[in-house]
Design a protein around this nucleic acid. Structure first.
Lengths: 371, 371
DNA sequence: CTCAGGTGAGAAAGCGGTTTCCCGACGGTA
DNA sequence: TACCGTCGGGAAACCGCTTTCTCACCTGAG
């Protein structure tokens, strides 16, 4: 019977089996040939004592504990959840577990939290860290083995995995332009988010590629209520001639749409709306939301693949960037002819027509290049 | 400068400071008075070497590693995410981190995963385990210190924290009955989910309390697409006289609603829809979804409070059950007079009228008691 | 029959900390 | 001045395991 007071140690097993600790260890780890008779006695003792090797002791001698850390700005973000799930499952298949640390969007806490978490584990993944680039560049190598998600970083020791937001934005604008939209509104994410910068870059590229198209960036955020709050500004822009909205992500779009409808706008008749990430709910929104699909779980799996290589001491793989895939649903459609011509007319009289939008003008960025 | 090849150990620090390891340990842990001069030298050496105590070594000697495990059936479930976030934040405030393990809804894998995860940590929280009650009852004590979420268990050593689903369902039915609904449909969750059983119990109680009200249970599931797939059966039931639907959770409701609309039903005019959990998106659904609110983060915080007490060796607190709170939004409203009388008429002719619904009859449970 | 080579098991040395134990020094009191 | 109690720091034990080292024994070849 197992001793209930104190868990059995390898010494107990050795004593009971009448062999040395070394033999017990050898039997349990199968590292070396052992007399079958000894093996049998050891196994019997293990079973009788309910012995399980101490993880701590094993960690101490091995110098690793088969655990990796994942640091995220917000555990409630569907993107990070998907990555966490993918990572967790992939790592589990190799006998690793993952430790999570939520920084609650506190960029300045990140370094300390990351170091502490890394110190407990064999490796770490920094998920969309919010800290400034120089700080990240300085910190990342100290954390190795490490993988960074959704931030660019040209450190050969620290591979990155991410989403090509710029490309995704270009593709999304292509889609909207292809439908005939020329005046777009972009609801921008948090400044601290690096992917926000990437999206802006993509938008600029797209605007350059489509001479007739302009994009107005409105400050917004990354959450449902941010989108909801932005609806009035969007409605104003729409009345000023905009025919399509690109939201920072799906959450913003999903928060935005119902309010737009409340304000009397029809989607997509009066205004097309597109999101980013393709969260599971996007297809069930009203109307179903056009979005750029991001392979969340796959992202997590790829992170693990890199982490594992790093832990094994292999050279880090090349940076990986997933190209988002357009999921065209009914929230985007060609602008109605009436609105289209109206838009063109208003655009022509830009200076005066944009006056109503100046409520948000201070933070509004005009991305058009063909001014 | 820190030695880049091998992290500094306490021996290195001691040597550099010209003191014993014991003194270094004492300085660093402040357990005992030490000569300020020694403390200064130690701190200098620590800084110079970039020394950080090994977590593994410390764990070995202390017999704990300041980490707790959380085992969940599905990391993508918003409820579990909320709990994880709450737990993670609360635990972090006490210097603890949390390790996650996703069982991917494999009930039979749970015991092994739980034991393994527990073995790496100081304590464990089993989140809505899917395993059968007898198995859980046998396993839980072996895992102590442990806290179980969303499962009842009368083991004094293993506190539980959960949601009073039965009560929530009662309250929800009260709400619908108060609006004038008498024929309800319930979209049931997975059989393995214990909270599904609780919900059913609540429904039975409610039906008993409201003699005029009946509830038809349709098998469904717990995810968006489960709700979506169930729409046809719901529409059939509605045509047969039902005027309100209670979904297993918000995800199901959110998947259901757009499809109902596609099928030509208006919400809430033709049918009221209610969910459970009050996920953030519920308020932004079309129409905004009436739901029973569950304090996800608070749940996680309470779990931590119990876990911490257990780890400290204190007696376990009493089981805690949160009573869900009704969030009345526009997806539920009084049935239209026409439909109401129609419902009554059809109910009277129940035997023949329910014939169209027999497509799902095999798995349909009639909860009405006043037959 | 003897000896080199090989094999398997026990003893012991870590892994990197914490904590106990012990002793020397110091301060206070008689 | 002598003695005792207190305090602080060093040596060493210990946490529980893995792994090296060592040695006894067994086998096969000369």
């Amino acid at each position: 019977m197992a001793d209930r007071t104190r868990p059995a140690t390898i010494a107990d097993v050795a004593a009971r089996a009448g062999v040395s600790q070394a033999s017990v260890s050898r039997v349990l780890n199968g590292k070396q040939n052992v007399d079958p008779a000894i093996a049998t006695r050891v196994h019997a003792a293990v079973a009788a004592l309910g012995y399980t090797p101490s993880i701590a002791a094993r960690s101490l001698v091995h110098g690793r504990n088969d655990t990796v850390a994942m640091v995220v700005p917000d555990l409630e973000n569907p993107l990070f959840q998907g990555i966490l799930k993918g990572l967790s499952l992939a790592a589990a298949a190799d006998g690793y577990r993952v430790l999570v640390a939520d920084t609650a969007e506190q960029a300045d806490e990140e370094p300390a939290i990351a170091r502490e978490a890394r110190h407990r584990c064999d490796a770490i993944v920094l998920c969309a860290p919010r800290m400034p680039a120089p700080q990240l560049r300085a910190l990342a190598p100290l954390l190795a083995p490490a993988v960074v998600v959704n931030r660019s970083l040209d450190d050969p020791a620290v591979p990155t995995v991410g989403v090509d937001y710029a490309r995704g934005m270009r593709d999304l604008v292509d889609h909207l332009a292809g439908l005939g939209h020329t005046r777009l509104v972009y609801l921008a994410g948090p400044d601290a988010s690096s992917s926000q910068g990437e999206r802006m870059r993509g938008l600029r590229d797209a605007v350059t590629a489509h001479p007739g198209v302009t994009v107005d960036a409105l400050p917004c955020g990354s959450r449902l209520d941010d989108g909801h709050r932005a609806a009035d500004a969007v409605a104003t822009a729409v009345r000023a001639g905009a025919t399509a909205v690109i939201a920072f992500n799906d959450l913003v779009a999903l928060g935005l749409m119902p309010r737009l409808v409340e304000l009397g706008l029809r989607i997509p008749d009066d205004v097309s709306v597109a999101g980013f990430d393709d969260v599971p709910l996007a297809r069930y929104a009203t109307p179903p939301l056009t979005s750029m699909s991001v392979p969340r779980s796959e992202l997590g799996a790829q992170v693990w693949s890199r982490l594992r290589a790093l832990i094994a001491g292999e050279a880090s793989e090349h940076a990986l960037l997933f190209r988002p895939r357009l999921e065209h649903r009914t929230s985007t459609a060609p602008p109605s002819e009436a609105r289209r011509t109206a838009g063109v007319r208003e655009a022509a009289a830009a200076a005066s027509a944009s006056a109503p939008a100046t409520a948000t003008a201070s933070a509004t960025a005009e991305l058009g290049v063909g001014a």
